[in-house]
């Protein structure tokens, strides 16, 4: 019984709290710019409104155009449910769950890009091309980070891997994972979610033709993915295995909020990179994770 309750709590956290993080980021950006900005709950209002709206479909779109976002959403949610959640711990732990997490995210990417290409629009093709191409580099960075964590903890289970802190290499790992977070969630400097120039976007341009409930699912999925990466980053760096109960919860919430503020500050201070510089930045993220891996491997040099 308690397992079911625990699962429901976990589900509620991911489903209900995810849209908070983009609101927080927007608030930070507004604060830096000296504006009041949209309310923190803005995304909830947007989602509620979209869910009630009708759907406009391209004449070219197949049923996959609606199925794609649904599958991608479930895949992200599934990946999120695999993560340990601070004091709640992990719901289902088994060897290799971390690989399932990484590949569920890849499945989400497959579905998103597939749906993007349904409409035959050149802009969406462009976004999808960028998404799958940059994913090659982020995938390398993510696998390297996972390997670093696994080598340090000597385990392939998320619960154990994220329990202790990343040790000496944690700064490197944090920097690498933060860059990956920015790239995977299409934030500045990789992509500008606020721009109105479709030519320069990645994620937003892929969902141009979505509307109504499918768009709501896409937006909610994106928010969950952002939260997932934030939680992953915080838990990779901080030793959650040593904290329990309230302390862990506070640390997790504080850490995620800190990541959100960081994203907001990066977005306020940096401009979007030129596309030809993006691979360079992603390679840097990969190298950061690689050096974190080396530190984890040799147990530090000191």
């Amino acid at each position: 019984m308690s397992a079911i309750v625990e699962f429901l709590v976990r589900l509620a956290v991911w489903l209900l709290l995810a849209p908070l993080l983009p609101g927080l980021i927007n608030k930070v950006k507004a604060w830096v710019a000296g504006r009041r900005g949209p309310p923190v709950l803005q995304l909830y209002y947007d989602l509620a409104r979209l869910w009630r709206k009708g759907v406009v479909l391209s004449t070219l779109a197949s049923p996959g155009f609606v199925v794609g976002p649904a599958v991608a959403w479930v895949a992200v949610l599934g990946a999120a449910l695999l993560l340990p959640l601070g004091p709640l711990g992990i719901s289902l732990s088994f060897r290799g769950d971390v690989i399932l997490l990484v590949y569920l995210l890849a499945l989400a990417r497959f579905c998103t890009t597939w749906a993007a290409l349904e409409t035959g629009s050149a802009f969406e093709g462009m976004g999808a091309a960028r998404e799958v191409s940059y994913a090659v580099l982020t995938e390398a960075a993510v696998i390297t980070a996972v390997l670093a964590l696994s080598l340090r903890s000597g385990s392939v289970e998320l619960g154990t891997m994220l329990a202790s802190s990343a040790g000496t290499g944690s700064v490197l790992l944090a920097a690498g994972l933060f860059t990956v977070l920015l790239a995977e969630n299409c934030r500045v400097p990789f992509d500008d979610p606020n721009t109105h120039l479709e030519l320069t976007m990645i994620h937003e341009v892929m969902v141009l033709d979505h509307s109504g409930p499918p768009l709501a699912v896409v937006l909610h999925g994106a928010a969950m993915k952002l939260l997932l990466f934030a939680v992953l980053l915080v838990e990779a760096v901080l030793p959650f295995g040593e904290w329990s109960g309230l302390g862990g919860a506070v640390a997790l919430i504080g850490g995620v909020a800190l990541v959100g503020v960081g994203v907001g500050l990066v977005e306020s201070w940096l401009a979007r990179y030129a596309f030809k510089r993006v691979p360079l930045l992603l390679t840097t993220a990969f190298l950061l994770c690689l050096f974190a891996l080396l530190v984890a491997w040799k147990g530090g040099w000191s």
Binding site: P279, L280, T283, T284, L287, L290
Partner: peptide
């Protein structure tokens, strides 16, 4: 830049 970064690493 990208090759030199990789070579440097």
């Amino acid at each position: 830049f990208l090759p030199s970064l990789l070579i440097g690493a």
